[in-house]
């Protein structure tokens, strides 16, 4: 069980969080009329990285915020976390 540093609440046990998949996947708006390939990429294509992975977590049983985490998928080490919208 990981300890996840919530950028709002500080380090908390993984039980309080839910996983949100890869971070920084841009969602095309309907108005931009994305091509089928672009929309497909947004919907289904993910990186499956070995190493440092930017991923979304939600402190669902805490402050309820979504945020981002850089985690090493080979060691589970969390390098840092930051709020949604930040880099």
């Amino acid at each position: 069980m990981l300890v996840i540093p919530c950028p709002y609440c500080g380090p908390r046990p993984e039980l309080e969080f839910s996983y949100g998949g890869q971070a920084h996947v841009a969602r095309p708006t309907a108005a931009s009329n994305p091509s089928p390939a672009d929309w497909n990429a947004f919907q289904y294509e993910r990186a499956n990285i070995k190493g440092l992975h930017a991923e979304r977590w939600r402190h669902i049983h805490g402050c309820a915020r979504f945020f981002n985490v850089i985690r090493d998928t080979t060691t589970d080490e969390i390098v840092r976390s930051y709020r949604s919208g930040e880099k």
Binding site: S18, R58, I60, A64, R65, F66, S84, G85
Partner: peptide, 13 residues
């Protein structure tokens, strides 16, 4: 609620 919060917080903050 989770889906709504996801879009609200990350797409339309």
């Amino acid at each position: 609620l989770g889906l709504m919060e996801d879009y609200l917080q990350t797409e339309w903050p």
